[in-house]
C-alpha cells in the first residue's frame, strides 16, 4: 500500500479497537462454551491463524484455559478450483495442520473477513473429513456482506453493511506489521474477500 494513496482509505478499526473487539469476542466464546476443554479453534489461512491464536490467548486469560489452535487451508475444498474456473493459486496449497482430535468437540472456525461465505463452506466440508465434531461455530473479525451462501458468523467483530463495491483490508501485526482494518470505496472494483 502506498503512503500517498492512503487518503482514499478509511480506518474502521485501529489497533486499540481491534484489541477490544477480540477481547469481547473471547468473552462471548467463553460464555457460550462452559466446557472449555471440548473447544478447539481452527484458523483459516492466512490471517485466520493469527486471529485464532489471539482469540485463544484471550480465552485463556478470561477463562483460565487456552484452547488448542490449528490451521485450515481450505484450498483442496474450494469450489472454484473444482470447476476449473480458478487456477491462479494452483501451484500453492496451504498446509492444513492440527494435532488434536475434533471428534465430539466444538470446532470454532476463525477467519478475518466473511463475504460470500464460500470459504466457510469449504472449511466446513474439510473439517467433516477430519472427524465428527459435536458442532461447528464461526468467528470473524469483519462481515463485509455480499453473501452467496446461507452462512452467518456466531461471533462477529464488526459488520460493515452490504456495499459490495467496498474493498476491505485486514492488516495484522503478525503478517503485515500493523493492526488495522481499512476500507476503500472503489465503485468499479470487483468484490474482494480477504486474501482471495
Amino acid at each position: 500500500m502506498n503512503g500517498d494513496s492512503s487518503t482514499e482509505y478509511t480506518v474502521i478499526m485501529d489497533a486499540a479497537a481491534m484489541k477490544a473487539t477480540i477481547y469481547s469476542m473471547a468473552l462471548a466464546i467463553a460464555a457460550d462454551n462452559p466446557e472449555l476443554d471440548s473447544l478447539v479453534l481452527l484458523g483459516i489461512l492466512s490471517r485466520g491463524k493469527p486471529l485464532a491464536d489471539r482469540l485463544a490467548d484471550q480465552i485463556g486469560q478470561v477463562a483460565g484455559y487456552r484452547p488448542p489452535v490449528g490451521v485450515l487451508s481450505t484450498t483442496m475444498y474450494r469450489d472454484d478450483l473444482r470447476s476449473g474456473t480458478g487456477g491462479e493459486v494452483v501451484g500453492r496449497i496451504g498446509e492444513t495442520h492440527f494435532d488434536f482430535s475434533i471428534d465430539n468437540r466444538t470446532v470454532l472456525l476463525v477467519d478475518d473477513v466473511l463475504a460470500a461465505g464460500r470459504t466457510i463452506r469449504a472449511a466446513m466440508d474439510e473439517v467433516m473429513d477430519y472427524g465428527r465434531p459435536r458442532r461447528i461455530q464461526l468467528a470473524c473479525l469483519i462481515d463485509r456482506g455480499g453473501r452467496e451462501l446461507p452462512i452467518q458468523a456466531d461471533y462477529l467483530g464488526y459488520a460493515l453493511g452490504t456495499d459490495a463495491y467496498e474493498w476491505v483490508f485486514v492488516r495484522l501485526m503478525e503478517s503485515d506489521g500493523e493492526d488495522v482494518v481499512l476500507v476503500k470505496h472503489a465503485q468499479d472494483a470487483p468484490v474482494s474477500e480477504g486474501d482471495e
Partner: peptide
C-alpha cells in the same frame, strides 16, 4: 504440492479423500 496430498493419505479420520 505433494506433501499436502501425503497428509490427505495419512489422515487419522481414515477419510483419505479430497474433492479436487
Amino acid at each position: 504440492t505433494a506433501p499436502q496430498f501425503l497428509a490427505v493419505s495419512k489422515r487419522a479420520s481414515g477419510i483419505k479423500k479430497v474433492p479436487l
